[in-house]
């Protein structure tokens, strides 16, 4: 099968039982997405698939041929952080860091949902979808942080919300030595 992850093409033979999360973590060396519960309850495995955030532990890899998949590794690098990643660092939006990739992918996907005008449980007027702290907290409630960096995460997302515009979910540009490549692995 063929997978497009962070603009890179991977070919892999996939066990039908393998989740998208395990494909990345155990077969492709993309361990940035985390497994916290394997049941879609904690959000640590959140990835962006065709621009939408999903719990990748609840989705089988075989369902994703030719999908555009973005993981935390595709948002930015240590040298070139995505604005959301930079905001998490400056606001201390984490402690142990284990839920963090999921929080960040979720935040990026969430801002896009707001931009598209999708309401949430706390949206008062369905014709006037906008972002405030209550909206951020509600929309991020699928991502659990046991260290409880919640107030700092809200600060980070609020700060980024105004800056991103349409760039919200595009992967970071590649560096010179990281050209598009094909990798063949057996999963």
């Amino acid at each position: 099968m063929r997978f497009t992850i962070n603009q890179k093409t991977y070919e892999a033979d996939v066990d039908v039982r393998t989740s998208l999360l395990d494909l990345c973590r155990e077969h492709l060396g993309l361990t940035g997405s985390k497994k916290g519960c394997d049941h879609g309850q904690c959000g640590a495995c959140t990835m962006l698939v065709n621009g939408r955030r999903i719990n990748s532990c609840l989705s089988l890899a075989v369902m994703h041929q030719d999908d555009e998949i973005v993981t935390i590794e595709g948002l930015g690098t240590v040298e070139d952080l995505h604005p959301m990643q930079a905001a998490f660092v400056s606001h201390d939006g984490y402690q142990c860091g284990y839920c963090t990739p999921g929080q960040i992918c979720s935040a990026v996907g969430m801002l896009d949902e707001v931009k598209k005008g999708w309401p949430s449980h706390v949206t008062g007027d369905l014709n006037e979808v906008s972002l405030n702290d209550a909206e951020i907290s509600e929309r991020m409630s699928g991502n659990i942080c046991r260290c409880a960096a919640y107030p700092n995460i809200v600060d980070a997302i609020r700060e980024v919300a105004g800056q991103l515009g349409d760039q919200a979910i595009k992967p970071a540009p590649r560096t010179a030595n990281e050209q598009p490549a094909q990798e063949k692995v057996s999963a």
Binding site: R25, G29, L30, T31, G32, S33, K34, K35, T71, I72, E73, L75, G76, T77, V78, L81, Q85, A86, F88, V89, S90, D92, Y94, G97, Y98, T100, P101, I104
Partner: peptide, 21 residues
């Protein structure tokens, strides 16, 4: 000051126990 290991954590590059090849 920001956590010195912060960039590793936010980019998914910090290796936890189960993530060593």
């Amino acid at each position: 000051i920001n956590r010195v290991e912060g960039p590793l954590k936010v980019t998914g590059r910090a290796p936890y126990a189960a993530e060593y090849p």
